[in-house]
Write a protein that binds this DNA or RNA. Structure first.
Length: 489
DNA sequence: CATATCTGTCATAGA
DNA sequence: CGTCTATGACAGATA
């Protein structure tokens, strides 16, 4: 798979979307939007040509100020390291033809950095993905609140609609969710099933499990799938379901008996991990060992979350859902977010961790499945978890790419505006220079004429004669009448 | 309470 | 054909 081509396409899509704001909005028909957004390449190209011509039309000077060249360049370089990750990278160091030409035209050093070489930035940052992402994020935040905002508001708008502070937001939300989780906890334990006939999962999800692709699964109040109707951790007092507590405990005990794993302890170990707010390991684990699936070993390195683009692990960063049923802070253990899928997996007693479900290669994943006897419901849940987990990461990456694409386009716009201004100044200088040369030529012409004399010693009239130079360098005095005859011929 | 933003999820296309 | 990835669209949670 070619990383360049792979990136160019989404970038172009983003360009198209920016060019036609309506496409960013929800349409009546998704499929229609899809086809529309992806099949109108030619008109968009025409628009780009027109836009370029406008930029080149230096008659109307509406430049608003120099671009923040160095800053944006550095910023964009910081994005580049995605290239080796998943075949994504910004700009790809392939200047668009117009810009490249423009850069060549430009005589000032201002445009040397028109398209910076991104690779060094990657190497500068090395493997410190923390720094990599932190850099990106911080700059995104800076872009969010520019101190010298010369970018047109129309271009600020789409960017500001995007997630510019995911990490911060995640932390902020994590704290906020504690209170929220407390409220939810109280709500569920107070009202119980009578007020909430549907499970938390069903209430949270628009569709719960994937529509049509999976049979109904055993969400806490949907025991039809063969799993426990709910899961309750007795040790930490977590209640994932609005079911009867006694029966829940029963179910938990049953799980204890019928399955080799101790979910309570597993959950406990997860909750005690603390370092990472998620059950998910963010490091792909290629090991196919089916034992100790919920062990702390699966916690993975939290740094993976900060890797450039979400690698393959699934995080609960900023997710509002995982915290909803966690125990309020200040209790026995550090609150750990439990996503719906995690609860489902526990409810159905899936005998391997989310980490493996999501991150294992398909072969290893299938091999893992063969090592256990799973019901259809469990199998469907596992596959749904895998699909959702991968898609969640993909969505996160997709959004980051979109943000970076917008930033890239804004920077490119600034550069083109600066270039336009430069060319306009250059044109003005040439115009003045030309006027001066014309004036000088007229003077010289008159002076030459003033020194010319005919056979009678009389000066030639500048109205009746003109000087003309032939290609061989010789100069002739030509009467206007002769010139007129030539023109008539 | 309305709004904006963030995030997870689904549907879909394409590789 | 199954899987994976990318992305638009949507919904829910939250600030």
């Amino acid at each position: 798979m070619c990383s360049t081509a792979n990136y160019v396409l989404p970038l172009r899509r983003t360009c198209e979307a920016l060019g036609t704001p309506g496409k960013l909005c929800g349409g009546v028909s998704m499929s229609a939007n899809f086809s529309g957004a992806r099949s109108h390449g030619a008109p968009q190209d025409t628009e780009m040509d027109v836009a370029w011509q406008e930029l080149m039309a230096i008659t109307e000077l509406q430049f608003e100020g120099p671009g923040e060249g160095s800053y944006e360049t550095a910023q964009y370089q910081s994005m580049e390291p995605m290239v080796p990750m998943g075949g994504y990278g910004m700009a790809q160091s392939h200047p668009d033809p117009p810009t490249a030409a423009a850069c060549e035209i430009s005589t000032a050093g201002t445009y040397d950095g028109c398209y910076p070489q991104e690779v060094p930035a990657c190497h500068r940052l090395g493997n410190s993905t923390e720094a990599m992402y932190g850099h990106c994020e911080s700059q995104l935040n800076q872009r969010m609140f520019p101190t010298s905002s010369h970018v047109q508001p129309s271009l600020m708008a789409p960017r500001e609609q995007m997630n510019m502070s995911g990490t911060i937001q995640g932390h902020r939300r994590a704290n906020a969710c504690l209170a929220q989780g407390l409220n939810r906890h109280m709500l569920w334990t107070t009202h119980g099933q009578s007020l909430h006939p549907r499970s938390a999962d069903d209430l949270e999800s628009d569709s719960g499990l994937s529509l049509g692709s999976s049979p109904p699964l055993a969400s806490p109040d949907n025991p039809g799938g063969g799993g426990a109707p709910g899961y309750q951790s007795a040790e930490i007092g977590m209640t994932y379901s609005d079911g009867e507590p006694d029966s829940m405990t029963e179910q938990a005990r049953a799980a204890h008996i019928h399955y080799p794993m101790d979910y309570q302890n597993q959950s406990h170990s997860y909750l005690h991990s603390g370092a990472h707010p998620s059950y998910f390991s963010t490091q792909p684990t290629l090991s196919t060992q089916p034992d100790a699936p919920w062990s702390v070993k699966q916690q993975g390195q939290p740094s993976a979350l900060s890797s450039l683009y979400v690698d393959s692990g699934v995080s609960s960063r900023g997710s509002s859902q995982p915290n909803m049923y966690t125990k309020p802070q200040g209790s026995i253990s550090t609150p750990a977010p439990v996503s719906r899928d995690e609860r489902r997996a526990m409810a159905l007693k899936i005998p391997f961790p989310m980490d493996k479900i999501i991150n294992l290669p398909v072969d290893d994943f299938n091999e893992l499945l063969t090592q256990y006897t799973l019901t259809d419901t469990q199998l469907a849940l596992v596959r749904d978890i895998r699909r959702r987990g991968k898609n969640k990461v993909a969505a996160q990456n997709c959004r980051k790419r979109k943000l970076e694409s917008i930033i890239h386009l804004e920077r490119e716009l600034s550069q083109l505006q600066a270039q336009r201004e430069h060319l306009a100044k250059e044109r003005l200088e040439f115009k003045h220079s030309l006027a001066f040369i014309k004036c000088r030529l007229t003077d010289l012409y008159s002076e030459v004429f003033s020194h010319l004399r005919d056979e009678d010693g009389q000066p030639y009239s500048i109205d009746d004669y003109s000087l003309q130079q032939t290609p061989d360098g010789k100069i002739y005095l030509v009467p206007h009448t002769t010139m007129q005859k030539r023109e008539q011929c």
